[in-house]
Simulated scan of single mutants.
Amino acid sequence: MTRTLIRPTGFVDSPFGHDGKVARLAGGLNWFGLVELLRIDGNRRTAGEIVPVAGIEDRFDAAMAADWARITGQRKALQMGERTIRLDQPQVMGIVNATPDSFSDGGAYADASGAADAGAVMAAAGAAIIDIGGESTRPGATTVWENDEIERVLPIVQRLAAGGHAVSIDTRKSGVMSAALGAGAKLVNDVSALTWDPQSAKVVAEAGAPVVLMHHQGDPTTMQDAPRYDDALVEVFLWLEERIAAAEETGIPRDRILVDPGIGFGKTVAHNLELMNGLALLHGLGCPIVLGASRKRMIGALANEAPADKRLPGSLALALKGVEQGAQILRVHDIPETVQALKVWRGLRDAALTPKSV
């Protein structure tokens, strides 16, 4: 099947003086004056054309018009208990892995009390959401028994939720989702995009919780053996589009769905770079974008094999690349540093978006 996808590009500092020539990206702080029209056949692009935003509607068919409405539409804020997480500006999600074998911080939080304290520190440093995980999904990781995972995460979720923090649960398992949501978690972050456990979509739908659907290719045990794509950017877009439709069919509305391109999950360095460069295409899905590139292997591959705990500069570079293309949530390990980078970025945006007197 042939169709045309729309990738926002040609970002500008300010919309002032450019009426009709620029568009606002996803109701956020980014404006763009050009789009790349990607003609695709099946799962790969066959042609690309850079065109101005001015008059672009004249070229739309019905499908393109729907994508354009999603690209330029406002993203609804996340309501996580008493906390409202606005998505008209980038937010930080802090990572707390209650695991012995995560690729970066495995074993860092030896007990529930220490993990909860670490999450509270992250929140104090500016993390809007604390993401709790009890199973490593790094390349080569093995599956954790559901009850073991629950025992790892539940006390942490309970402590942080009782402290008034916005908590998400990072899991593939419906039993863990149900237990964590019952303990006060308000968002599900599923690296399998609700494909691993056939009961997970039902649990999310009945709880009325927002959910992050992450792209992946293969299982964590084998996903990095030989990942292949005809066109990584297009395939990730189409796969997430299918998963959104599947989630909607189970009763999860689109305004409670977030998407994650799955950096490092069944992808080579080249695939990851392609996704980072083309990230704005995903706004055509009409869902907030979660970017989890913090300390990922691609940084080491590009920087003299820097170990995971030495990848902060690369993580910040990828974070800022993401927010420049409208990513709404950055899932990171290094909260104070990322928050500071975003404050400087926000200062630049605020200055650009302040009308100047003549």
Results as ranks from 00 to 15, higher is better:
residue 272 N to F: 03
residue 273 L to R: 06
residue 273 L to E: 07
residue 275 L to N: 11
residue 277 N to F: 14
residue 278 G to F: 03
residue 278 G to Q: 08
residue 279 L to N: 01
residue 279 L to V: 00
residue 280 A to N: 01
residue 281 L to E: 03
residue 282 L to V: 01
residue 283 H to C: 12
residue 283 H to F: 08
residue 284 G to P: 00
residue 284 G to K: 00
residue 285 L to F: 02
residue 285 L to G: 05
residue 285 L to Y: 00
residue 285 L to S: 03
residue 287 C to R: 01
residue 289 I to P: 08
residue 290 V to A: 02
residue 292 G to E: 10
residue 292 G to C: 09
residue 292 G to K: 08
residue 293 A to G: 09
residue 293 A to P: 05
residue 294 S to M: 09
residue 295 R to P: 02
residue 296 K to S: 12
residue 296 K to A: 11
residue 297 R to K: 12
residue 297 R to V: 15
residue 297 R to D: 12
residue 298 M to W: 04
residue 298 M to P: 00
residue 298 M to F: 07
residue 299 I to P: 08
residue 301 A to W: 12
residue 302 L to K: 14
residue 302 L to N: 09
residue 302 L to A: 08
residue 303 A to I: 12
residue 303 A to L: 14
residue 303 A to N: 15
residue 304 N to V: 06
residue 304 N to Y: 14
residue 304 N to T: 14
residue 305 E to M: 11
residue 305 E to V: 04
residue 305 E to K: 06
residue 306 A to F: 07
residue 306 A to G: 10
residue 306 A to K: 12
residue 307 P to D: 09
residue 308 A to M: 11
residue 309 D to R: 14
residue 309 D to E: 15
residue 310 K to H: 15
residue 310 K to W: 13
residue 310 K to M: 14
residue 311 R to F: 13
residue 311 R to S: 10
residue 311 R to T: 04
residue 311 R to I: 05
residue 311 R to Q: 12
residue 312 L to M: 13
residue 312 L to A: 06
residue 313 P to C: 04
residue 313 P to Y: 01
residue 313 P to A: 06
residue 314 G to S: 08
residue 314 G to K: 01
residue 315 S to A: 10
residue 316 L to F: 01
residue 316 L to W: 00
residue 316 L to K: 01
residue 316 L to S: 07
residue 317 A to W: 02
residue 318 L to H: 13
residue 318 L to I: 13
residue 319 A to L: 08
residue 319 A to Y: 05
residue 320 L to H: 09
residue 321 K to A: 15
residue 321 K to L: 13
residue 321 K to W: 14
residue 322 G to L: 05
residue 324 E to S: 13
residue 324 E to Q: 15
residue 324 E to V: 07
residue 324 E to T: 10
residue 325 Q to T: 03
residue 325 Q to S: 03
residue 326 G to S: 03
residue 326 G to H: 08
residue 326 G to P: 12
residue 326 G to D: 02
residue 328 Q to C: 08
residue 328 Q to Y: 05
residue 328 Q to K: 00
residue 328 Q to F: 05
residue 329 I to K: 07
residue 329 I to D: 04
residue 329 I to T: 04
residue 329 I to Q: 05
residue 329 I to W: 01
residue 331 R to E: 04
residue 331 R to Y: 06
residue 332 V to C: 03
residue 332 V to T: 03
residue 332 V to W: 10
residue 332 V to Q: 05
residue 332 V to M: 08
residue 333 H to E: 03
residue 335 I to S: 02
residue 336 P to M: 10
residue 337 E to T: 09
residue 337 E to Q: 15
residue 337 E to P: 06
residue 338 T to W: 03
residue 338 T to S: 03
residue 338 T to Y: 01
residue 338 T to F: 02
residue 339 V to S: 10
residue 339 V to H: 12
residue 339 V to I: 15
residue 340 Q to N: 14
residue 341 A to M: 11
residue 342 L to S: 04
residue 342 L to R: 07
residue 343 K to E: 15
residue 344 V to Q: 06
residue 344 V to D: 07
